[in-house]
Structure formats: structure tokens, C-alpha cells
Design a protein around this nucleic acid. Sequence first.
DNA 1: TTGTAGGCGTTATCAC
DNA 2: GTGATAACGCCTACAA
Lengths: 358, 358
Amino acid sequence: MNDTTPPRAARRKAATHTIHDVAALAGVSSITVSRYFNSPEKVSAAVRERLREIVERIGYVPSQVAGGLASGRGRVVCAVMQNIASATFADLVKGMTDELQASGLQLLLANAQYSQALEENAIRTFVGWHPRALILTRDDHSPAAEAMLAALDIPVVEAWGYVEERPFHQVGFPHAQTGAELARHFLEQGATRVRFVLPQISEDFRASQRAQGYADAMRAAGLAADVQRADVDDDFEAGARTIAALAGCAREDRPQAIIFANDNMAAGAILHAPDCGLQLPRDCALAGFGDAPISVRLKPALTTLRPARYEIGQMAARTVLRMLAATADGQADTEPMLCRERLPCELIVRDSSRLWLG
Amino acid sequence: MNDTTPPRAARRKAATHTIHDVAALAGVSSITVSRYFNSPEKVSAAVRERLREIVERIGYVPSQVAGGLASGRGRVVCAVMQNIASATFADLVKGMTDELQASGLQLLLANAQYSQALEENAIRTFVGWHPRALILTRDDHSPAAEAMLAALDIPVVEAWGYVEERPFHQVGFPHAQTGAELARHFLEQGATRVRFVLPQISEDFRASQRAQGYADAMRAAGLAADVQRADVDDDFEAGARTIAALAGCAREDRPQAIIFANDNMAAGAILHAPDCGLQLPRDCALAGFGDAPISVRLKPALTTLRPARYEIGQMAARTVLRMLAATADGQADTEPMLCRERLPCELIVRDSSRLWLG
DNA sequence: TTGTAGGCGTTATCAC
DNA sequence: GTGATAACGCCTACAA
């Protein structure tokens, strides 16, 4: 009477089919079923057909969770966005998912709202998922985050911006340079007084980077930089107020051109200008950033910068895939080559930026 | 000489710390570490402090993958969007992530681009992740998808729309009714000729539902429904063309009011009207859908419907949490109560819809 | 409060 | 081409 412990209560009745169910039905071992999914060519055609039928019939789907644990390589890529609800990041996300999906990789998203602390939290959470790669959308992380990234040993892509010296893959464009480009666009037309207007709550450090680029370009031309910050939260309202304030200024004191940190502010200005008795671009030239769909429809049509949002997301994903393929090819010892993909942010010149020098 | 098989090669050197590493360092068993994370109150304060220090020092993060497998309840909620890059779905996603994150649940996203087939694929993929719940954004699924949903045995929420008879939780608003509401808004002003304009590629069946609601309301008033479909892809351009076509019509033949399927089309119409010699709303009243940020700034300001996008996402997530809490409370036998959350889609009346009856 | 034993569903390794 | 066996890292059940 071997009084071994009574059979423990079954932990859980598998509410779902397992690889073993399929194996039993097909009269093969479970490893064969595993092979059927991961390298079908190693399974005989006969067995393959039998399995296909059974899998279809009972609706078996392999567990990503169990597979990820067993193989040590889950099918997950994590990305930390700065503002999930913005058009910019929505396009990035679409580019990434479109590209990753084809490779059977699942994108896990987090939202950091332009906060380093939230980004750090998100990264910490993601570490628990053992992602194959990480996509970030800023280049200045908290020290703790940098430490985690250094310890991670997976591809890390910094997308949206582009910085030469970073130790991670870069996919995007240099924001400061685009700010400078807009400044030069006006300087070349002979402007001497150009203003840059930031949103009130500019958590978006990219906008500040563009402002910085503008300021440098102005100083390089021997002119004063004039960066202002909006005093209302709503971007459209901020633009409207900016233009309204102009109406109260003598022409000699007004900026000849204004660069808004985004198209919404510029649109607010353009739509409100007639109410202030101002005619654009005669009374003030304008430019924005982002190429919102409406910008080309405004009167005057808005000069702006068009970042390749979707393409940046797509390329970030491709970079991930390339790095994964590389490490899979046993290039373990190869030096960890860094991808630097510089994507376009095109200057779209329209009527709003034509300078009228009085 | 017990020639048992030579010790198999270790499968993989754990590149990452495990619960056992922490346990060894702390001089406790691994289950204690597990408890430290899952129910800290069951661990003595002394041990707790020791573990806290060690976890912090080595940067240990529990594996969601292993935990999910072992417990049978992963921390994943899956959602299938119809167009990740649109403002509508971006807001939904933000509402969901904001709410889920607090509960430590991770949102997995897929994009179905208004396609039943892609939605089915996404659901199939998600099944492999053993999600705790599923959030969908349409109510007409493929038969195969319906079958999977029926077999899933997890909470399923259909968000964005709202349909009484569905067997899944509903969070949203009835689209047809909002279409009818806009129609009545014009009918009550005495309009007899009201048109509804759909986008060219109206994969968005919601827009069609709103058109249907409009058509029913018109017929109920004894009037003819006049649903047109745009002939260009770009919504702004479609709106512009719609209004341009009006200019060539005799006043008696023109609709007195136009309902556009979205604010972008309406904005295109408003921005282009002056070029056609039309004055709005005198020559034609207008309404849109979605309450885009720009709509209130247009001249005339656009009458539109304001769906509670963020709130719908948030409420969908809350519904998930409520259902999970309920099943956790051992209410296994309780009948599977269905949540029906009807969220507002408010009519925002502005100048564009004021009817001028000639 | 803490520990032991065993298993979650899959894949890596080795043997035939 | 196929299979037996032992992990993967954690958690549930039960015992102390």
C-alpha cells in the first residue's frame, strides 16, 4: 500500500485545446504537431494533411505564451509612444503594425505622454514581456531607463527623431534641422524679424528642438531669435491669439513671418486673421509643421513640413526585423552594427509663407 | 557505473534574472518571492524589505510570459480596431490604455481596416495570446469569427456602436439614430430637400448606418432620401466638389441642407464655398460628424455630432475590468450578465446648419 | 508565515 | 521523419 500523496486536484481543466489534444487525435506525438507549425517541411505530407484537418476542425491555435516561454523568444515587439491619440503617433503605429504583422510579431504599445518617468515605467513593464525588440520615440531617457536599455541585449530603435551620437538605431529626421530650414526659408526671402511660437504646454520636446534649430539659424544670420510660448492650451486658439496680437502692433514692430510649432496653431491663425483685419501673407507670412490634411485647403494654403510619419513607423519595424534576422543568422559575435535611417521631412512651400517686405 | 544519459546541455543560459536568483540572494524559497509580488501582505515585513532591496539592485522584473502560463490568466486584453491611424480609434485606444494600465493589463492591438476578413485574422491571432478579454469595434463579424467568439469564454465587448440584440457587451451609441437626429434637425427647421453625402470608399459601415438613419427619418417625414457618394478619395476634396456642384444648380433644385458623413468633408465644403460664390449657410446649410477640433473654427462654424470617443474607450475597458472582477468573485454560475453602456453622441449646433428658406 | 511538489503548454536536445 | 525527455519561469495546491 504505497501511500503516495493522493492525486492532487487537477490544477485547471484546460478550457482550451492543447498541442497534446491535436497529437492524440492525429495519433502522433506532440512534438510532431509542434513541428507542423514551426517547420512544416520536417513533417511528412501525409501527417501534415491529417494535422491540417484536425487543427481546422477543432480550431486549435498554438499558445503564444507557452511557446514564448519554452523557446525563450516570444513574438513580441514593444513600443513606447509619447501621445497615442495624436495623428503623428497614430501614423507611426500603423506603419509599425503593418510591417510587423507580416512577420507574426505582435506590437505591444504604451503611452508616455512626453514624460520620461512614464516612459521608464513603460519600459520596466515591457521588460517583463521579454520583447524581441524595443521601439522608443525619444532619445533622452531617464538614467534608470538607460540602464535598463543597456542591460536588455535586444535591438532598441529610437524612431521619429534622429541623433548621430546615440548608441541605438535611429529612424527619423533631425528636428532641429527642420526648424532651421523653416527659418532659412524666410531669411532667404529677406526677412529680418521671424518669430517661433511654441504651444503653451510644450511637453513635446521635439517642438522645442525645432525652436532651437530656428534660433540657431537666426543667430547664424546675425539676427535675434524670437521664441514665444502660447498662453492658452488649445492650439487653434493659441494661433488665433497670436495673430490677433499682431493686429495691435505697428507694422515695423511686427514679425514679418511666424513659424508655428504645428499646423493646428497656424490654422487657428489663418482662420482668425480676417476677423482681425489682417490679410495673409501680406501682413505676415506663416509656416507650420506636420502637414495636416487641412493645411493645403486653408486660404492662404499653409507652408509646412511634411514628416514621413507612416514610413518612419514602417522603417522602424523593418530595422527591428533586420536586426532579428541578423542575430538569428548566428552573427552573434559580429559587432552590433547600428542602423541610421534618415527619413525625409519635406518642406512644402505654399502661399502662406510668401514674404511681403514693406 | 550508472551510465545514465550524460547531463543534457543546458538549454539556455538565462540571460535574465529569475525568481530563483532573487530567492537565493534573499535566502528564501522562490515561492516567497512569488508571494512578494502577488500578495505582499502574506510575506513578513522583514523578508519584504530584503526582497525589495534585492529586486531593486539586480533589476529583476517578473516574467509575464511564465506567470501567464503558470497561472492560466495572462495580463492581456486584446482589441481589434478598424483604422488605427484615425482620430476616432486613436482616442478609443487612449481611453482603453489609460484605464487598463492602472490594472496592470496590457493592451494588444490589431488593425482590421474595416474588413471582416482581417478582423477574423486578428481574432485568431489573439486567441493564441489567451487574452482575458476582447474588445471589438464592429458588430457584424464573419461566421468563423462569431464561432471563435462563442467558444472563447471570456468577456467580449463591442465598442463604438450600440446594438440592443447583440450577445456581447455594448459600449457606444446607435449610429443610425444619430443620422436620424441630424435629419430631424433640418426637418424641424422646415427643410424638404436634405442630402446625405458618403465618402467614396466608405468601408466605414458606421457612416452607412448613419446614412440609413437619415434616410429612414426622411421617409418618415414623407420626404425623399437623397444619399450620394463622393467621387474622390480625399474627404476634403470630396466636400469641395460637392459644394461646387451646387453652384451650378438652380436654387429650387438644390438641397437646402447637406449632411456630410464626417467633418473633413464638411470642412472641405466650407473652405471651398467662397470660391464658388456660395455663402453658407444662406445658400446651403451644412452638418458633419465627429466634431473635429477645427470644426468650431470654420466660418461658418460647423454643426456636428460629438461622439464621446475617449469615454467609449475608457468605458469599454471598465466593462472588461468589471467582468473580470465578477468572474474572479466566484460568480461562475451567475448568469453571464451583459453590460449595455450607452454613451453620448451630442448634437453640437453651430452656425452652419441654420436654414435659410427662400 | 513559509516551504515542497508538481504542472501550465510548448520547444530544445538527443536518440532512433 | 519521428519520438522520449527535460526544461522554460512561474504559480496552484497542499503541508507544515
